[in-house]
Design a protein around this nucleic acid. Sequence first.
DNA 1: ATTTGTTTTGGCAGCGCTACCATTTTTGAC
DNA 2: GTCAAAAATGGTAGCGCTGCCAAAACAAAT
Lengths: 367, 367
Amino acid sequence: MVALPKQMAYLKKMRWAASDEERCGVRSWRWESKVDFDFKQSTVTLAEVAAAAGVGESTVSRVLRNEGSFSRKARERVMEAVERLGYVPNRIAGTLASAGSRLVAFVIPSLSNIVFPDVLRGASGVLEANRHQAVFSVTDYDPQREEALVAAMLAWRPTAVMLAGFEHSEGTLKMLRASGCRVAEVLDVDGTAVDLAVGFSNRAAGRASAEFLLKRGYRRIGYVGHELERDTRAGKRFAGFCETLASGGSPLVAREICSGASSVESGRLGLERLLARHADLDAVYFSNDDMALGGYFHCLAWGIAIPSQLAIFGYNGLDIGRVTPQPLSTIRTPRVRTGQLAAELVVTNAPPQVVDLGFELVEGATA
Amino acid sequence: MVALPKQMAYLKKMRWAASDEERCGVRSWRWESKVDFDFKQSTVTLAEVAAAAGVGESTVSRVLRNEGSFSRKARERVMEAVERLGYVPNRIAGTLASAGSRLVAFVIPSLSNIVFPDVLRGASGVLEANRHQAVFSVTDYDPQREEALVAAMLAWRPTAVMLAGFEHSEGTLKMLRASGCRVAEVLDVDGTAVDLAVGFSNRAAGRASAEFLLKRGYRRIGYVGHELERDTRAGKRFAGFCETLASGGSPLVAREICSGASSVESGRLGLERLLARHADLDAVYFSNDDMALGGYFHCLAWGIAIPSQLAIFGYNGLDIGRVTPQPLSTIRTPRVRTGQLAAELVVTNAPPQVVDLGFELVEGATA
DNA sequence: ATTTGTTTTGGCAGCGCTACCATTTTTGAC
DNA sequence: GTCAAAAATGGTAGCGCTGCCAAAACAAAT
């Protein structure tokens, strides 16, 4: 059912361009398609191309895949026919016949958290260069959905499935193992891989952050994060962080967990709430850079001096953090590289392995 | 369908083992897989399930798709066999036999520009709810690549193809029209649609921004943008902006075009360069919020008072702009909704139409 | 019981392509 | 020319599933 919003509150606000067309409002109109409205697939098949070119089907197939041997003349005739008929190969049929889908499935927690688009971006280039294609779906950090989506993905007989981290339901793991396709678990190395894993240690990142803050002399340290049960990698960072703080003799003073996904706004609100309870903190660790930026903005807005009055530390190393008036202190992670490498391992059919790409601590100016 | 195992032990308490290996470096090791390293696809077929269940193939097919009629008993026997054998349906074969891929192809310019993940996010939910799947590839704003990628996508006989905007190569258009699959062009309405279009008017957004700035009394206005030939929607905004400025009697004073994609850093550098040439500007329009944030940070860092000394105006209405110390003045666009609606139109096989979802001007505090 | 109508079932022909193999044509060395 | 080796070609059997159809089983009404 097409649900066209009839009246949206925000539209009333303003009207522009009284002159010609009214563009700002919701508007919709029919457009007489030149396309035949009976949307059936164009049905030029390889057999038809073969007939048109006056060669056998096998020859057409070989020419099109540039594989096996065929004469220059055959090639020309085939290409001519392909062009003339507007033939588009059917990979569905091709895959069924040859058992090689060249499809790589991504089952990721979210598209809002820039981390995952980054991985997709890295992988996407490599896949394309190797004539593979990316399919994806979004779990919203829900293991149940992940399981259902993995099942759906496997139905496409992908070359590989890529998932975030190691925490999956038993059912998911079982399916993956039974599927026979490659599995790449990315963005973490703290756990047991099914097959391939590419990423970095979140726990170590948490520890490194704590160590840095301690070394800088901060002692009353707090944490602002988002839902940890869902984002298990953030949970691991937090655990590593607390661990090192504790063994350093300055255990975490307080934490504020914001419900929902991480966001700049959550970070800002989280810090506000945390400081309301503990005004004497001298440093705050955030679950990631988005959250940290929110904290940073809070401080800017309220005139809290950074880092003398309060230090801020994030995670991810987003580009934006390098351009803020004071560069954000954070840990930069090779997310794009993670996607690239995972894709490379998959397309080269590399043996099972875990690759730790490490991370880089960016000192910045906020801690 | 594969029965999904119930309990998930996915939250197997992670062990935060003591300080063992140093995780921060690059490291990689082999892991002895329990999976047979001959990665052949599991080969349980529907026929085998039928045999195991003691029913015909058709019955299995009907049960699995929950379509047509079958007895309760048949259902039970089939499900039991499916579970016991770990059968995963093969959609490749299913699609070939039934001509309905339930695949929606996205050919988008970029994953770095948050706009596109937003659209994907909106579409993704709707598609999933309708048992469709998203395939995507990235053109990097290159029409040639777009053409190649569309061709590759069409080989999967998708239900629909979604593209950004209306500017496509002749070849792309021809293929799309000939493909017989639905086409949705998103994020713009200023142009001629092939089939479906969902978005908002970039021209009008540019005009609205200019009108707003003029109304606020700014007269010496500049522009900082990124490569316009590539991002045609940004180009349309710019055109609309200049148009209104000119007809308002205060034509654009200067512009600074940064090479490469839009980014916070480009915005900062761009503003710096622009001000070096024209110190007397009283407002700057940016090609989008990322760029505008960069400009905002530049001002913060250099003590340029906003908006009294210099006004800043962006485009997109990113969340982050609402949380900066001064909320960013910008135009908020319904990107997620665009993805949703486009997906809805596609899955409901709605007639060809263009839907303008409008936009909202956010006054903010920077202009 | 018999008839009529309804539900359930299984067989099988493709879907469009590739893999394999057998056949034909070409090439090159004598 | 001849002959063996190599290159080029075409026929055809599936890949795993769904759609169609006829057959079988069951139910309801006489």
